[in-house]
């Protein structure tokens, strides 16, 4: 299997780079970078090639039957032809496909996790909790996940409201998040990089803009990142940033958002303790910088209408800049 898997992967990468071009992150099943996605990629090529051959066979038969002389096509006009190609061929190929699929499904389901991350889908963002073995939350963050390459990670999937679906095509197939149930998905990343995932079950107004990032790093980088994330963020170093922090608290941001080490401890919206380190704001909608942070704060309803963050249009220019600078400094 291994040589075939390598061929399949290189075929896919070739196809993917033709289609995708240069980019520093991907969201594609055609660029498998995780344990599940690689197994599925192999299966996909087999299904695709097999399917293409059968399709070409049917088209060839159609051409022969429609265009050629009776003497050349008479062999087709009988029961044996129908039974041979219509029953025996499908039975044989489908049995093979089913068997192979079951083998792949089995390998997908048999990983033993070494890390647990609970992800809760909400309209329209992702609540992320890193858990320890007993289930206590070690780190709370949102819309972005980092994992070490090569470690099987168990994603414990829940939802706060409607059905969502957790899908990072570079790593694995998707799994729905269903009210009243907990679903679990375990896979590992095989290549470092930045990967994007997107909600894959229609969940309402802004389903189209509900995405997240998974960053796969080496173990050492992961440990470093994790240690930095878990602690409290640095205190504001300049008066401007201090003013930003003070405005952040006085305008009530803390009633929905948590910034550890301050009085802001709201749980309704995403944890913003380290929002400055994130790749995106608005659940994968915009990159993070002072401009987008300001825009999001003051005009979230204009940028992603129907999401839970109101537009704080009452913030004046200097106030807005200060708050945005403060958030950007939460690294």
């Amino acid at each position: 299997m291994q040589p075939f898997r390598k061929i399949a992967l290189s075929l896919t990468s070739a196809a993917a780079s033709l289609l995708l071009g240069a980019c520093n992150w991907t969201q594609s099943a055609l660029a498998p970078r995780g344990s599940h996605a690689e197994a599925i990629d192999q299966l996909t090529w087999i299904l695709f090639i097999g399917g293409m051959l059968i399709f070409l066979l049917v088209v060839a038969f159609l051409t022969i039957a429609s265009l050629l002389r009776r003497s050349l096509k008479g062999w087709m006009a009988n029961y044996n032809f129908i039974i041979g190609f219509g029953i025996l061929l499908p039975v044989a190929t489908l049995t093979a496909i089913l068997t192979f699929s079951s083998v792949v499904l089995n390998t997908i389901h048999s990983a033993q996790p070494k890390m647990r991350i609970e992800v809760t889908g909400e309209q329209f963002w992702w609540r992320v909790h890193y858990l320890d073995e007993s289930g206590t939350i070690k780190l709370a963050t949102a819309n972005e996940i980092r994992i070490p390459v090569g470690t099987p990670v168990e994603f414990i999937l829940k939802t706060q409201d409607v059905i969502h679906s957790f899908w990072v095509p570079n790593f694995a197939g998707k799994l729905d998040m269903i009210p009243g149930r907990v679903t679990k998905l375990t896979f590992s990343a095989t290549t470092p990089g930045i990967y994007r995932g997107q909600c894959a079950e229609y969940c309402g107004a802004q389903h189209a803009l509900m995405a997240f990032y998974i960053v796969a790093t080496t173990s050492r980088e992961f440990e470093g990142w994790f240690a930095q994330q878990v602690g409290n963020p640095p205190e504001p170093t300049t008066p401007f940033l201090a003013r930003g922090q003070q405005l952040f608290l006085s305008f009530g941001c803390g009633s929905c958002h948590t910034v550890r080490g301050t009085l802001a401890d709201g749980r309704f919206g995403p944890d913003l303790t380290r929002v400055g380190t994130r790749l995106s704001i608005g659940a994968g909608t915009f990159p993070v910088n002072i401009g987008t942070l300001a825009a999001w704060t003051s005009s979230a309803q204009h940028l992603k209408p129907g999401n839970a963050m109101p537009s704080f249009g009452n913030l004046q220019g200097e106030q807005l800049r200060a708050i945005a600078a403060y958030m950007e400094s939460l690294k």
Partner: peptide
């Protein structure tokens, strides 16, 4: 038939 194969469907579904 491709979609009937569960692992493939988990990528292609939705």
């Amino acid at each position: 038939v491709m979609l009937a194969s569960v692992p493939f469907d988990l990528q292609a579904h939705d």
